[in-house]
Amino acid sequence: MYSRNTEIRHIAAADAYQLAQILEHANSWKKLMAIIPKTFSSPPVRDAPKKYNADEIRLIENASLKQGRTGAEILFDEWGTSGRKRPTVGNLLDLLVEAELLRAADYVAMNFLNEPPPERPANGPAAKIDISLPFETEEIKDVDE
């Protein structure tokens, strides 16, 4: 278990590996890497200057192919040890939510921080679908055409 202030570089390798596997899907780690800001400020500044550019993302992709490691693991190594103020699990979670990488965000919230999953937006593909059966009491209405 970690806290929001735990530095990413202090995440146990096995935990980082699990998260990295999730971030392999649909190259999610690239979406994460692309939005990492140069410096974190709270509240976060809208489109703050980014830390990594497309070339650096490609560098890590090539390294992952050569080393046979996931892009995310290499990203964690690089990003986790960079900058005067090291990035924390809290920074990571906020970025995952911002990028709507919600499977990874839920994993960090529930498994790393023992928090409930982050709030979902009200609409759009990430919005939660209501699965309650409202007509459990009244007669099932015909779904109107």
Binding site: E100, L102, R103, P125, K128, I129
Partner: peptide, 22 residues
């Protein structure tokens, strides 16, 4: 399904959408 699944939706949520679509 892979895209929507990556947003951590559940199978029951999909089931309800399919119901809305008959």
């Amino acid at each position: 399904l892979a895209m929507w699944g990556n947003l951590n939706h559940t199978i029951t949520e999909l089931f309800i959408l399919l119901y809305r679509m008959q």
